[in-house]
Every structure is written in structure tokens, then in C-alpha cells.
Amino acid sequence: MNIIDFVNVSLTMPRTKRRKGSGRKQRLRRFAGETSRSMVPVIEDVSFTVNKGDSVAIVSGKPILRTALVRLAAGTLIPDTGTVTRLASVVPMISIARAMGPTFTVRQNAYLVGGLLGMKPGELAEKLPGIIEFADLGNYLDRHLNGAPSSTRQRLAWSIAMAVDADVYAIDQTLVVGELEFRQKCWSAVDKLRENGATFLISSDGAKQYRRFCDRGLYFEQGALIADTTVPEALALARKARREPRGE
């Protein structure tokens, strides 16, 4: 049963990298007619389907492509051409920790982030004890976030996202958080969700997580889908591409 359908999806994104130079230099450049926000093609004519229960690894050398794919799957980006059809609810786990306010307490942040992920306040109130227990933040519940250890943000983000009832979890780079103990907790949580039939879409830097969690690998090169195979094969392709410089 297919859950997410990508049909001929293409996407351009504004260039994210900032040019070097002081503010004055940048202003001069703009004055000279350089448009600072040029669009870069990121994804070109990609089609694939994600089936229920799949655990898909997005293998690509470009972080922006991985993030864009995760966001497209979650519906927080709209493709330029082509369509993305979702038949299930998707939780995007993308830079959640960045949205937290340092002047709010942990509890307030939990409500804020949970609300942004589409949970109702009543639902959150029910799940809050579970979230806090998972993140092991009982001591910090009513303390400001900037007074708590820096790993708190990541832990909290992770715990909230895991608490959302969804069929698909789209994870971008946040798979490994915190110290060893918490990491193992996260992994066992992911395994449990997978046993229950949840679908995962994972984008990450390290090959280790792919091997552990994914049973399907999508390898992208130059914005196009090159191979839809198993994880070791996709990783092998990526390694090969890295060894051979482009344009050979």
C-alpha cells in the first residue's frame, strides 16, 4: 500500500549560502546589480513511492536535497512542478529545536512545539507526562530553557515528535541526539514504532543509521533519482561517486 507518492517532482530553492564580506560589501554588490537570491535547482523530475511500513533512506551528498525531500514529503514545501500525494499523516522532524523560545519554560515549549506539529492542547496535556519521562526532564519542567543544559532542546524536540500519532515520520538529521543513554532510548523507540507498522523517511549524514534502520535506499545525484535499491547498494553508489570526481 503506498502512502506517499512523488510524481515528476521538480524544485528550485533560493541559494542558502551567504556570500562572504561585510554588510557594506554585500550592499555594494546588490547595488551593482547582483541579485542575492538566485534560485538553484535542487530536485529534478523525481518520481517514487513510499509504501506502508517502509523505512526509506535518502542517500545524497547534498544536505539541501535531503532536507527538501523530507519537507516535500511532509507537505511543508510545495513542488514547482509535479505532485506529492500523501495518504497519511506525516510528522516532519526538521530543526524543531530551533523554534523553541529560550525565555519559555520547558513546559511552555512543549506546548508550543506540539501545537506546531498539529496537536491539540488537550491531547498534549494527556501526553506531557510521557514526553517528559521519555526526555528525562522532570527536574526542568518549569525552568527556562536557557537555564537548562543544551541537550535539553534536542531531547525535548525528539520526545515530542515521537509522541505525535502519525503514520509517517520524516526525520532530517536529528536522529542521533544527546548522550549515549538517550540515544539508545531513541533507537529502541524507533524500533518499536517500526514494529507497529510506522513508516520512516530518514535523511542523515552518517551511514551507520541507514544500515541500522532502513530497508530501502534512494540514491540521488545532481537532483535526480539514480537508484532505488537496498541501503548497502545505495551507500556503495554514494561512495563510488565520491571517489570519482564529477564529470568523468
Binding site: A74, T76, S95, L116, G118
Partner: peptide, 10 residues
Amino acid sequence: SRGELAFATL
């Protein structure tokens, strides 16, 4: 609101 829009399903 940068960052918030990236993951908010609203």
C-alpha cells in the same frame, strides 16, 4: 518565524 515553517504542519 524561520525554522518554524519547516516542520509545522499547520
